[in-house]
Computed example of a mutant assay.
Amino acid sequence: MSKFRLTELLIKSLFTGLRNHLTKNKGTDLYFAFNQQSSLAEMLRLSQEENFDKEVHIIIPTKDKAYLLEKCVKSIIKFSSGWKLRITIVDNGSEEPETFILLSRLKGDFPFIDVMRDGRPFNYSQLNNVAFKKVNAEISIFLNNDVEIFSAGWLEDVTGLLKHELIAVVGQKLIYPDGSIQHFGVKLGQGLVAGHPFQGSSIRNINLSQALEAPIEVSAVTGACLAIKSSIFRTVGGFDENLPVGYNDVDLCMSIRNLGLKIVLAPKIRAIHHESQTRGKIRSFSQIRRAIYDTLYMIYKHGSSLQKDPFIRKC
């Protein structure tokens, strides 16, 4: 066995032992933040005091595909016991009768669910910005209607990280229904702007720091499941509405990092992402033209910052 491999196994064993030990002590949380500029890991111990109320506001844009939305909302409720939830569903021009039946039922059964009707042409940034005006909670979560949560304690993990004064955004590991990775952080410089470096890979291909399920700092995370301090979202002016479809999440994260704050991925949190099942894949000429515009806009706005990712160096 090589010296490097032995060291790797020893580090993994040490961190696993520490985590297991602390887990047995009620009320104790241990998170790891990985310094991607070196091969060493630094431990980040977060305060045990509650700095946030147990309240979050979740915003979900949707259009038809009632079966996806129902899975999404049911998973939130199932895995958010003990939390004060406010869910705003933004209906962007649904037409299918089953969607209206579901929205009416959800609103009737759960007093914490609101439904906003917004039939304007699809603009993800605008839909979320308008819905955000109703937010009073300290933490907001932007969630796609095709994401299904299946992590107990996911909100505890999100808020635990957001307690840290330098952490502004927390993203989650998203997997496809077949178990392969859809999102494990966003890498700048992949393609002309940014991309998902591990997309389609098996969980087993993730390296040591990620295998530990430890929070890692990244340049950006997907808006499909993005938790943020509401005050920071207001400070940066929300999503850039000049980016109605693509890269609005990357742009948001880059604007936040320009403030000296951190974007963190929490691999411990798992969710299934039935990606693009509502809007579909890019096929039409107008969609292609839109994607080209989004790319050129990002290059114009962020320039050389897009060329090299400071965190994800190898994938």
Rank of each mutant, 00 (worst) to 15 (best):
residue 22 L to H: 14
residue 23 T to I: 04
residue 25 N to P: 03
residue 25 N to F: 05
residue 25 N to L: 07
residue 26 K to Q: 07
residue 26 K to N: 08
residue 27 G to T: 07
residue 27 G to D: 09
residue 28 T to D: 12
residue 29 D to Q: 12
residue 29 D to E: 15
residue 30 L to Y: 06
residue 30 L to R: 02
residue 31 Y to R: 11
residue 31 Y to T: 10
residue 31 Y to P: 04
residue 32 F to N: 13
residue 33 A to N: 14
residue 33 A to W: 12
residue 33 A to E: 13
residue 33 A to S: 14
residue 33 A to C: 14
residue 34 F to N: 12
residue 35 N to Y: 06
residue 35 N to T: 09
residue 36 Q to T: 15
residue 36 Q to W: 12
residue 37 Q to S: 15
residue 37 Q to Y: 05
residue 38 S to V: 06
residue 39 S to R: 00
residue 40 L to Q: 13
residue 40 L to S: 14
residue 40 L to I: 07
residue 40 L to A: 12
residue 41 A to I: 15
residue 41 A to W: 13
residue 42 E to H: 05
residue 42 E to C: 02
residue 43 M to P: 15
residue 43 M to Y: 15
residue 43 M to E: 15
residue 44 L to N: 12
residue 44 L to W: 13
residue 45 R to H: 14
residue 46 L to P: 12
residue 46 L to W: 06
residue 47 S to C: 07
residue 49 E to P: 07
residue 49 E to M: 03
residue 49 E to F: 03
residue 50 E to C: 09
residue 51 N to C: 10
residue 51 N to L: 13
residue 52 F to N: 13
residue 53 D to K: 14
residue 53 D to F: 13
residue 54 K to E: 09
residue 54 K to M: 05
residue 54 K to N: 11
residue 55 E to A: 07
residue 55 E to S: 11
residue 57 H to A: 01
residue 57 H to N: 03
residue 58 I to Q: 01
residue 59 I to M: 10
residue 59 I to N: 09
residue 61 P to Y: 01
residue 62 T to H: 11
residue 63 K to T: 07
residue 63 K to R: 10
residue 64 D to A: 00
residue 65 K to H: 07
residue 65 K to F: 04
residue 66 A to N: 07
residue 66 A to Y: 10
residue 66 A to P: 14
residue 66 A to F: 08
residue 67 Y to T: 10
residue 68 L to E: 13
residue 68 L to C: 13
residue 68 L to K: 11
residue 68 L to A: 11
residue 69 L to D: 10
residue 69 L to V: 09
residue 70 E to S: 14
residue 70 E to N: 15
residue 70 E to F: 05
residue 70 E to K: 15
residue 71 K to S: 15
residue 71 K to E: 12
residue 71 K to W: 09
residue 72 C to G: 07
residue 73 V to H: 10
residue 73 V to I: 09
residue 73 V to F: 03
residue 73 V to S: 06
residue 74 K to Y: 04
residue 74 K to A: 06
residue 74 K to C: 02
residue 74 K to F: 02
residue 75 S to L: 02
residue 75 S to F: 01
residue 75 S to T: 04
residue 76 I to L: 12
residue 76 I to C: 08
residue 76 I to N: 08
residue 77 I to E: 05
residue 77 I to Y: 04
residue 77 I to N: 04
residue 77 I to C: 05
residue 78 K to S: 05
residue 78 K to I: 02
residue 79 F to A: 10
residue 79 F to Y: 15
residue 80 S to R: 05
residue 80 S to E: 06
residue 80 S to P: 11
residue 81 S to H: 11
residue 82 G to N: 04
residue 82 G to L: 03
residue 83 W to I: 00
residue 84 K to E: 04
residue 84 K to W: 02
residue 84 K to G: 00
residue 85 L to E: 01
residue 86 R to H: 11
residue 86 R to F: 01
residue 87 I to Q: 02
residue 88 T to S: 00
residue 88 T to G: 00
residue 88 T to P: 01
residue 89 I to K: 08
residue 89 I to S: 07
residue 90 V to C: 00
residue 91 D to L: 04
residue 92 N to E: 08
residue 92 N to L: 06
residue 94 S to M: 03
residue 94 S to L: 00
residue 94 S to I: 03
residue 94 S to K: 06
residue 95 E to R: 11
residue 95 E to F: 05
residue 96 E to S: 03
residue 96 E to L: 01
residue 96 E to Y: 02
residue 96 E to N: 06
residue 96 E to A: 03
residue 97 P to D: 01
residue 97 P to N: 03
residue 98 E to K: 14
residue 98 E to F: 10
residue 100 F to I: 04
residue 100 F to A: 12
